[in-house]
């Protein structure tokens, strides 16, 4: 029990550290690198939230699939819109 609470606190600190990293990144890098940093950090943060806060760590495989399924579907929308936009 105590251990679980400690783990959640660690995750919380990690999230705040990632937030600091992404804010710092916004002042130092620009262009494509900036996008990589800010969205890489955001993805890491969301992964932590999903895995630890939302307890996907202990859920069954099916629930995990459902949790990320919509994200995969969103990727379809974003990818095909990008294909049109960059080749127009």
């Amino acid at each position: 029990m105590e251990q679980a609470r400690k783990r959640l606190a660690t995750v919380w600190l990690a999230l705040l550290a990632l937030l600091a990293l992404t804010v710092a990144g916004s002042f130092t890098v620009t262009g494509a690198a900036s996008a990589v940093v800010s969205f890489g950090v955001a993805a890491a943060k969301v992964a932590l939230i999903f895995w630890f806060f939302m307890q996907l760590r202990t859920e069954k495989g099916l629930i995990r699939v459902f949790a990320v399924g919509a994200i995969a579907w969103l990727a379809i929308l974003l990818t095909l819109v990008t294909i049109d936009k960059v080749t127009r």
Partner: peptide, 19 residues
Amino acid sequence: WHLVDAIWVFLYPVLYLAR
């Protein structure tokens, strides 16, 4: 509540941190 949080985590770089 976690999902509302996670969405903000993405909105923040999309809107505030475009460089």
